[in-house]
Write a protein that binds this DNA or RNA. Sequence first.
DNA 1: CAACAATCCTTTCAATATGAAAGTAAAACA
DNA 2: TGTTTTACTTTCATATTGAAAGGATTGTTG
Lengths: 143, 143
Amino acid sequence: MNTKPDIDEIDLQILEHLLMDSSLSHKHIGERIPMTGQAVGARIRKLQDLGVIEGYTLRWNPDKIGLHVHAFVTVFLHSPKAHSTFQAYALEHKHIAELHRVSGEGCYWMRVRISTPAELNDILDELLRYGNYKLSLSISQVK
Amino acid sequence: MNTKPDIDEIDLQILEHLLMDSSLSHKHIGERIPMTGQAVGARIRKLQDLGVIEGYTLRWNPDKIGLHVHAFVTVFLHSPKAHSTFQAYALEHKHIAELHRVSGEGCYWMRVRISTPAELNDILDELLRYGNYKLSLSISQVK
DNA sequence: CAACAATCCTTTCAATATGAAAGTAAAACA
DNA sequence: TGTTTTACTTTCATATTGAAAGGATTGTTG
């Protein structure tokens, strides 16, 4: 038994192509390998079955629809009891785009995308119910 | 002149659908609006032209191809002169998946995806050339 | 008010991409 | 050596796509 399932170099090439542009046709990707579009399709299905590919989504610009504030928040919970309610709060909150349990600084790290500083302020107020926080604002995304 | 370009509720619905699954057919999305697939296609092209949709990509699981370490690093640069070399370093580094200039804690925030703690150690060593850092490891992604 | 233009949709149509199935070649293995 | 497995290609039927043309509605202007 290997640590990795049988994913070879060709699979990784296909993965890289799709990460760059998942709207590429199988045929187009196949020309680079080279391989027919159908063979590429079969490998992509394999990557999905293995759970390497979880789904298809967009690269997009939230700023263009008015979500001008991009914040990184480290959360320090008051008490162990706060975890479940905090997670429930974060999961249902539309503007909490990402949430991780972390070791290191604090208990959780989260990404917030929201329209205005005032709305961010509201979120921070709500966070105080669960614990404390440390805030960083993204000024520009370099990569 | 409006702050937003002409993006209406229907556009946002389409955007949400594509964020959930960008492999949905235009026709399928159209059934929920409701609208023909061709009309959905035209709106998607509009969203691309406006720069709201920047491209198509995957949701995937780096862990499955051996990238077991997911780290968030806050970087504090020594001096103003370090910025350009640091950015160049980060941009070309394969395992630095995301980089933001931030206000708040430190100068930069970055996401690192890498195979082993030992390799992370190497990156941290290299970071010391530019400044200091603070490290958090993602234990589990909640959202 | 009437004519016109603009917008946004539908319908139609031709080109293309897709997945399934069958066939083939090469490698792995008894 | 013969058999099985694997991974590809070819073929084919179906579905998706974008372009073009047509129609309805709304807004604009003389």
